[in-house]
Simulated assay, not measured.
Amino acid sequence: MLKIEAIHHIAIICSNYQDSKKFYTEILGFEIIRETYRKERDSYKLDLSLNGEYIIELFSFPSPPKRVSRPEASGLRHLAFAVSDLDGCVAELAKNLLSPEPIRTDEFTEKRFTFIADPDDLPIEFYEV
């Protein structure tokens, strides 16, 4: 059996680099580690960290095809981020003109959660821990 240590990073391809960069840094609060323009690919790569840990690679490519998220399709379903204060999270999202889904309770853990979508409609979950 493999001995996987942890998730190293999540790679996301966006359709509008500036919109997604603003969303992940200014709204969600990820910190920029480095931003690289790759001329041969006409592509940006933005390395982002959360609490000092490398977590997201945000890529831009010219005219990427749209990925189906809804109705639920095979493949990556959503990204989930742990928050300690879901009500505060929802209030902060509202300040940024984002409308989360109604808060639900996980039937197994009895923890509360909600969803929003990133600029490319990728579902983002906030899970209260």
Rank of each mutant, 00 (worst) to 15 (best):
E31D: 15
T36I: 15
I27G: 09
L86M: 06
A82R: 15
D47A: 13
R104D: 13
E107R: 14
S74N: 14
R67I: 08
G75A: 07
V68A: 13
A117K: 13
F113I: 03
A73W: 05
N16R: 12
K3S: 12
R41A: 12
A73C: 11
E26Y: 00
I124W: 03
V129E: 14
E92Q: 15
L28Q: 07
L79Q: 06
C14E: 05
S69M: 12
P102H: 03
G88R: 08
P62V: 01
D19E: 14
T105V: 12
H8M: 09
Y54T: 06
R112M: 03
F61N: 12
Y127F: 12
L46S: 08
E31F: 00
I33N: 12
M1Y: 05
C89N: 06
L76V: 08
K111C: 11
T105D: 07
E125F: 00
L28M: 09
E5C: 07
S15W: 00
G75I: 01
L79G: 05
S63Q: 14
P71R: 09
G88F: 02
R38D: 09
F115K: 13
V68D: 13
F59Q: 07
R112N: 07
A91E: 15
I10W: 00
R67G: 01
K111L: 09
T109K: 08
N96Q: 14
K22F: 10
L79I: 07
G52P: 06
T36M: 14
Y24H: 04
E53T: 10
R77M: 10
S60I: 01
I4D: 05
I27E: 10
E107Y: 02
T105A: 08
N51W: 01
S20F: 00
K22N: 15
F61V: 11
L58K: 04
V129Q: 13
V90W: 03
K3D: 12
K95V: 06
E57W: 00
L98V: 01
E35T: 05
